[in-house]
Simulated assay, not measured.
Amino acid sequence: MPIPEDVTGDEIDKDVRQELQSLPKTLAEDVAKNLVMVARLIDEDPEGAYGYSRVALRLASRVAAVREAAGFAAYANQKYAEALAEFRAARRMTGSVELWPVMADCERGLGRPEKALDMAGATEVHKLDKAGQVEMRLVAAGARRDMGQLDAAIVTLQSPELASHSVQPWTARLRYAYAEALLAADRLDEAREWFAKAVEADRDGSTDASDRLAELDGVEFVDALDENQNEDAGGNATDVTRPDAAEDASETGGASGGEDARDGDV
């Protein structure tokens, strides 16, 4: 696959660069460039990222960072069995538990929420850092929802991290997941409150909490292009609000809902 001229391979972080030092110089450079492309494309073009990850995997399958990148690229394309296999391989190579939450979420994606819950109770969870433990909590709550255990999902998310007023990298997603769980349980007023709290913490737009809050408030946003077309046709611009919009809003849930690790970085 073609590599843009502006990609040198030097963009990768120093830990990955150190891993690639076990390879011949030219090969290491080629692998690094493909890993840069995976990172560059994974959010906006998951299929493209997957293609580059396969090239890197073909060149250096014995490098843990390559297996991990291949896992995340497969995960982004909902190829959960493949992702799980790559994550397991990376974990065997490094001995790290860092990938434990996303491995559990792959089990959810494969329709095995019970397995995800077993992993949430494993000793590996105690070895995770705070961010990893929060991700594991998100996955466990998602698994509960997969199984129709809405009240248990809500309780799973209730934690010191959720109650804290300080904003951490995981705060917006944790509050969002809690709001989603409350909404699934038809606790609308509480759900609105927590979507609002998620908006307050979402400094980088990692969730669509503002849109979900607008839906609950009955606000409908009209596309500017449609509005201009209406004006060109001689009509008045469409009002940006509609009182009954919240009734038409559809709730997301299940394995692809906002409470799981697949909606965010692990």
Rank of each mutant, 00 (worst) to 15 (best):
M1Q: 13
I3H: 03
T8N: 09
G9L: 07
E19K: 08
L23Y: 09
T26I: 15
L27H: 09
A28D: 03
V31C: 03
N34L: 00
L35D: 11
D43Y: 13
D43I: 00
G51T: 05
A60T: 02
V63D: 13
R67H: 15
R67C: 14
E68P: 00
A74T: 02
K79E: 14
A81P: 10
L84M: 05
F87N: 10
R92M: 13
R92K: 11
M93Y: 06
E98S: 12
E98G: 06
P101I: 01
P101E: 05
P101G: 09
D105I: 02
R108M: 14
G109V: 01
D118T: 02
D118A: 12
M119A: 11
A122Y: 04
H126E: 14
H126D: 15
D129E: 13
V134Q: 07
M147E: 13
M147Y: 01
D151T: 10
D151M: 04
L162T: 08
L162N: 08
H165F: 14
S166D: 14
V167K: 13
Q168A: 13
R173W: 02
R173Y: 01
A177H: 06
Y178Q: 03
A179R: 02
L182G: 07
F195A: 01
D202K: 06
S206F: 09
S206H: 10
D211H: 12
L213E: 04
D217W: 00
V222G: 08
V222T: 13
G234T: 05
N236T: 10
D239W: 06
D244T: 08
E259A: 09
G264T: 12
V266F: 12
